[in-house]
């Protein structure tokens, strides 16, 4: 592993100042380290400087005015998953967290770090292979290589990787805001706007600038989220990244008309994918399996599957339908 400097500042401002003033070519914030340290061992990340941000005090879950939640970026995944308010008001977020990694990793991993974890595309994590994300201009090895588990939506010729976070998918459905401390002060980034589609700059996972530090996640009050769930499909029963996942929330009027619906997909794109077309199709109409299927089809109309992952289109469709039907209490 390449030698690096390690700093432990007192607060967020200090962390941002330390990182931006360091002059280090490759500086990284260190949260739980469950992804970054692996990547350093593999030589994928070679930072000169690590700034520890796990002990800046952003470690509380607080109720906000109006019934939302503010989650400190350094809260551990396990702690947030079992938070009673989160489990009542946003069950899909708790379920998403618990579907990720293993208990040991969830005990260490932070919420901010979870959102900023890197893709598990094998071409990205092996420095002997071509990857535009790791080494811009080297080419995408996955495009003509192994890509069963890659993107079907929003990908580019430069990159077909998917974002691995389960939490980010649920937060995208909620419409959470990411609070960022940067060189120019604090700003709010609404999900899914944090993560980028790859375009011709896949080396940039997010819209964050160098030095930007996530300090908290804000979950707005959302009545629909009380009836929500997260469904993750994977190649084994636990400790595996999503092949496809769906976070969905559904709120219906007494006559069965859909008042609010939220749908986000994981495992299908470079960013968590908010299924806005499907949501639009559904709002204001009855909650039936037929309409769920039509909405899923409308969303997946945009899909551009690759040679080895065409199965993700029917898989995503099936999941959208079955999760919504379950929430609506109708037969899929």
């Amino acid at each position: 592993m390449k030698p690096f400097r390690f700093e432990r500042p007192e607060n967020a401002e200090g962390a941002v100042a330390t990182l931006t003033a360091s002059g280090a070519e490759h500086a990284r914030y260190l949260g739980g380290g469950t992804n970054l340290v692996d990547l350093m061992r593999l030589g994928v990340e070679t930072p000169d400087l690590l700034v520890d941000v796990a002990r800046l005090g952003h470690d509380a879950v607080r109720e906000t005015d109006g019934g939302g939640l503010r989650v400190g970026a350094a809260v551990r995944n396990s702690d947030l998953a079992r938070d009673p308010l989160l489990r009542t008001r946003y069950p899909m977020v708790s379920q998403a967290l618990l579907s990720g990694a293993s208990p040991q990793l969830r005990n260490l991993a932070t919420i901010g770090g979870n959102l900023l974890q890197r893709t598990r595309c094998a071409y990205f994590t092996d420095t002997s292979l071509d990857c535009n994300k790791r080494d811009p201009g080297s080419g995408c090895g996955a495009l003509d290589g192994e890509h069963r588990n890659h993107a079907i939506l929003g990908h580019s010729a430069a990159c077909i990787a998917t974002h691995p976070s389960d939490l980010a998918v649920a937060l995208t459905a909620v419409g959470a805001e990411v609070l960022v401390e940067g060189a120019a002060g604090e700003r709010h980034i609404p999900m899914p706007g944090l993560h980028r589609l790859p375009g011709d700059a896949p080396e940039r996972d997010t819209v964050l600038d160098p030095g930007d530090l996530i300090v908290a996640i804000q979950l707005p009050p959302l009545e629909a989220a009380r009836r929500s769930s997260y469904r993750k499909v994977r190649d084994r029963a636990s400790f595996s990244f999503a092949v496809v996942s769906v976070a969905a929330a559904l709120q219906c009027d007494e006559d069965g008309t859909i008042r609010d619906v939220r749908i986000a997909l994981g495992g299908v794109a470079h960013a968590p994918w908010r299924a806005e077309r499907a949501e639009e199709e559904l709002r204001g109409g009855p909650a039936t399996a037929e309409r769920f299927a039509a909405a899923a089809a409308a969303e997946l109309d945009q899909a551009r599957p690759l040679e080895q992952n065409a199965f993700k289109v029917p898989l995503a469709r099936n999941l959208i339908v079955t999760v919504l039907a379950d929430l609506a209490g109708v037969a899929a």
């Binding site: 002997s128 292979l129 090895g141 290589g145 084994r236 029963a237 400790f239």
Partner: peptide
């Protein structure tokens, strides 16, 4: 159900050469 090492047909590299990519059964299985 899950074990399968995949070689990139162009480079011969074992693409999924770690336990994130090469799945073995866990307790839940």
């Amino acid at each position: 159900l899950m074990e399968e090492a995949i070689l990139d047909p162009r480079t011969g590299a074992t693409v999924n050469h770690d336990f994130a990519g090469y799945h073995v059964p866990v307790n839940a299985d």
